[in-house]
Amino acid sequence: MPLRFAPLCLLAVAADAHDFWLQPARWQAAPGEPIRMTLQVGHGPYRQRSPIPARRIVRFAAIAPNGRQIDLRPGMHIGGADDATAAFGAPGTYVVVLETDNRAESHLPAIRFNDYLKVEGLTPAIALRTSAGRMDADGAENYSRHAKTIVRVGLAGAQPASRVTKPAGLALEIVPEADPLTIGRGGALPVRIYYRGTPLAGALVKLNDLDHDAEPVAMRRSDAQGRAVFRLPGKGNWQLNVVWTRPQPKTSLTDFDTSFSSLSFGAIE
């Protein structure tokens, strides 16, 4: 009996090291004030700075309130005291985006890979492995990260926050249909999930309280239009995340190409 429990204990440890997000040191700053950011991975006791190398980051930019894209790569210093610094002169709400390539690989034993697919809600992948008779086979995937965070510069209401509800062009993206920074306690936060530009149905979206993130606060499946609606508990540091995968060509060395997407923000109401 004890031997059977041991791998399950380690499964519970390992299954939590999936999520990735941009974490600003503060969600609100004065015009021109530097905003320090770190790249975080994992939740609860397994949360840590991501060891991702800078060469894998293909896009790090901010979308200004007027829609202009600002390249933030000069402010990257991955692995330092923090991972990036950005400063914005004009007041308004900025959406900072980060994307990586998909050259990261994950190779897991069958039991862990199946558990990871189940935890992240990747039911099409489970169905594919089941129909191919590969549930006992180890799983390998390439994966990429697509993270967004919302920061506010200057006083609230100084500029219309129009870009928050618009897609930023990420391969897998969580797009809020209402500005999360203006939703009060208990208010509805509808989001739409896009995968390669089209609404994605059946994706498991999780809402995490970054101050108590051992377990998600809420989980929703996106509907046929790719929409999911959450209730924001109130003021705090929040993060939404979603994962999606697609099978690789048979000639590929891995089985799946997986995208991880997140949206982090600080609710101040």
């Binding site: 204990c9 390992a14 090291a17 999936h18 990735f20 991975v41 994992g42 840590q48 990261a104 990260r145």
Partner: peptide, 17 residues
């Protein structure tokens, strides 16, 4: 024993990057 054993490759934390 589990607390002092080196982690075998199959049980390393995954998806860190």
């Amino acid at each position: 024993t589990l607390t002092i054993l080196p982690v075998t490759p199959g049980y390393l934390p995954d998806h860190l990057e």
